[in-house]
């Protein structure tokens, strides 16, 4: 049985609880063990790299040390955590001088033995859309969505690089494997302003509202993401006259398609209730309201 270390990150223990719940449920169903890293720490997010480069590398490096000790590749569902850890990994592998500097602040000796993996990367490259398709018990036919990657999963490409930086396709293919209709659109990697949502809420509101408009124009009735910062920003800052679009985590839709009973609990945690949509397209029984 395959096993990965699991790094939920701070968001999956708070605003992204349904992401945590759906990821763990899906991997259980896929018979892939997730072992949470012991005593992991915050990656520092944008605050660390705004203030100090060394700190922004040392914080994730401490987690890489834990993963190295555990001896397994580590899955990081949160796009921001993934990006910060991949940046540290990239730096550790760049020059000996940079490696020594990070090793000194994070107090460990780096060996390139285990790797940081994004959720979509594992679902696509390890599990695969075909295998996933064979496990589907509830086809998501009739659910038009757009795959939204945001920034940190795909940029900068030399750091992330598991999908195309400007025209990524893996999330869309996974959604297709579930039976959902992934609509083509041009904003899959446009920034939602998630990093500014608390300090510059008006900027975030403008960006999110535009993204939702574009998704609607593309014929989508929901947006699918793999980033808890995007997800909460997209739910919290959608404004304008149009009805707000539900924002799904990719893992939630995988869980729904695999027929996981736990999924019902996830919808209740959303700020924009996706249940009317799911009922409308016949993916949820009408009497199961509440």
């Amino acid at each position: 049985m395959t096993a990965y270390s699991y790094y939920p990150g701070c968001s999956l223990h708070s605003t992204g609880r349904e992401f945590d719940a759906s990821v763990t449920a899906v991997f259980r169903a896929l018979k892939i063990d997730l072992v949470e890293l012991e005593d992991w720490n915050c990656c520092g997010a944008s605050s660390a790299h705004s203030v100090d480069r060394d700190l922004s590398l040392a914080l994730p490096a401490r987690n890489l040390a834990l993963a190295q000790a555990a001896g397994r590749d580590v899955i990081m569902p949160c796009a921001a955590c993934y990006n910060r850890h991949r940046t540290a990994e990239h730096e550790l592998q760049s020059t000996a001088e940079r490696r020594r500097r990070i090793e000194a602040t994070a107090d460990f000796e780096y060996r390139p033995s285990v790797h940081v993996r994004a959720l979509i990367e594992v679902l696509y490259d390890t599990v695969g859309p075909q295998a996933l398709r064979e496990l589907v018990v509830r086809d998501l036919r009739g659910l038009p969505v757009v795959a939204y990657y945001g920034c940190l999963l795909v940029r900068p490409p030399q750091v992330t690089g598991f999908d195309h930086a400007e025209h990524p396709t893996k999330m869309g293919e996974l959604l297709g494997a579930l039976g959902a209709e992934a609509r083509p659109w041009g904003d899959a990697t446009e920034c939602c302003g998630g990093g500014l949502t608390l300090t510059q809420p008006n900027v975030a509101r403008r960006l999110v509202t535009r993204l939702a408009e574009r998704a609607r124009e593309a014929g989508a009735q929901a947006i699918v993401t793999s980033c808890p910062l995007c997800q909460v920003n997209l739910e919290m800052r959608q404004s304008g006259r149009a009805e707000r679009l539900p924002i799904f985590y990719i893992s939630e839709l995988v869980g729904l398609a695999l027929g996981l009973e736990e999924s019902k609990a996830w919808w209740r945690m959303h700020l924009i209730d996706p249940r009317p949509l799911l009922r409308g397209v016949g993916l949820m029984a009408r009497q199961a309201a509440g």
Binding site: R17, L55, A58, M269
Partner: peptide, 25 residues
């Protein structure tokens, strides 16, 4: 919705964390 835990998760190795901060600029 239980999305903002009022009681914080706390790292066990807090001393190590503070060392890491002071070692960084």
């Amino acid at each position: 919705k239980g999305k903002i835990p009022l009681v914080p998760h706390v790292l066990r190795d807090r001393a190590g964390m503070r060392r890491l901060f002071s070692r960084s600029l």
